[in-house]
Design a protein around this nucleic acid. Sequence first.
DNA 1: CGCTCGTTTGACTGGTGTCAAGCGCAGTGG
DNA 2: CCACTGCGCTTGACACCAGTCAAACGAGCG
Lengths: 254, 254
Amino acid sequence: LSANCQEVLKPRDEQWSPCLACALRNDNICGLLFGENEQCIAPNLQLGLAQVSQSHRTALRRQTIYRGGQPSKSIAVICAGWACTYIKLPDGDRQILSFLLPGDMTSATAVFQDSSPVSIEAVSDLRYCTIDKAELRAVLTSDRRVLDAFFEIWARKKDAVEQLASDLGHRTAEQRIARLLLDLTARLGARGLVCDGRFAFPLRLQHIADATGLTIVHVSRVTGTMRKLSLIELDGRFLTILNLGGLKNISNAD
Amino acid sequence: LSANCQEVLKPRDEQWSPCLACALRNDNICGLLFGENEQCIAPNLQLGLAQVSQSHRTALRRQTIYRGGQPSKSIAVICAGWACTYIKLPDGDRQILSFLLPGDMTSATAVFQDSSPVSIEAVSDLRYCTIDKAELRAVLTSDRRVLDAFFEIWARKKDAVEQLASDLGHRTAEQRIARLLLDLTARLGARGLVCDGRFAFPLRLQHIADATGLTIVHVSRVTGTMRKLSLIELDGRFLTILNLGGLKNISNAD
DNA sequence: CGCTCGTTTGACTGGTGTCAAGCGCAGTGG
DNA sequence: CCACTGCGCTTGACACCAGTCAAACGAGCG
């Protein structure tokens, strides 16, 4: 197993120099905004793009990064750890709309708005990088490459939410959970964070329940069945996909 | 009752001169792109904005305006009638993501993409106006007002889809249907298409079922109950909200 | 008249929620 | 070292919302 898969985040243990060694940088929005790795010298760069300042922060699991409705001058990019976006329901329940993995950006549409109805919370201990909205807007309207990249991200997010809505409306508990696990596996795999179907898995059953619109009790039943069928191994800290074909079969992927 | 509420669309009956008399123009994207009514002279305008050409079309109910996945060079604005956006599920079912009312634009994110996974279908007989994506892109990147207006539309659409996901995951059949009816009433009301809680209602039970993730049988049961409780009157062509407070109570609005 | 479309109703089934109890584990403090 | 506590997970019994299947009705229409 590579070091990536075993990564356990200890944000306060180290004096990390954030972006210099970031393996994600060449693939996500950071590379575009701050330059590729080989060009990277200092946190504040001037690269033909307008200058965009960043500020790195950490959060402990369960901590709210952004409370829906409150004005905020910055958006964030996840450096390490997982977060989730959700909206609160009047009865105290919540619907998790997406899980943010390392390299993901928090709501891209928020760039042009003071506030968003969507809250963001750390799932695991978290390291993230905030970017000033105003500076980002300036870059967006001045550099066509950045604008295109953002539209690409918007479109993908939009597709994901629409897919979520369709899942919640039309799929069974088994299918929803299988699809969630497969989606996470694919997205982490693309970032090189999966080894032999195994990866660090900070979600509690409550997260899965909030994301799939189910109760924690039923999620427990379904994952229990999946384990008994040797489809997955889930021990609280790590998830292993034992039978990818079987899971895909359940998920009824189109 | 005003003429608006009784409007029955007969797209082929008349030689309409599309935008000259459009009551929606001053409130939606058309006014911004083509100019306000008093300035409107010809279908092709030059107004300080780049020139954007439009083309008016009609469709019969049930007709597909856009088939998801296929490349398309234009987006559309609904002039009269209702449409819906949906995604197809592998089992043949579909999830309706939104209903497009007069003045609404079809997926705004599609402006920067060749194709979208979301299909669009006419709910009632329809009159709509297509706008070339490339010309629109040019205006968007050159005129800041238009860009801002589009971001506003994007944000609202995003909020609506997220709200839909949360509804599908967490609300009962009664609540979902009540919320759908209230949402339509509010949006039509803002366009002046509602008189005393009454408006033309082209949706079949199947549409409501596809939008709420329910079966047509259950939708029939729930609307039947609402009728018996004198909350609504629904005779197939028109919907009347008889007890707005009662409906809102059921919908459990936040 | 016969057809289709949209709707309604009834009987039954089943997936998921609710309530409740209990277990294992990791801290934490004695 | 041990008891206590809280959190997360599991399991069982039961209830209920919504799906499925089936039949019938009315309206519109050729």
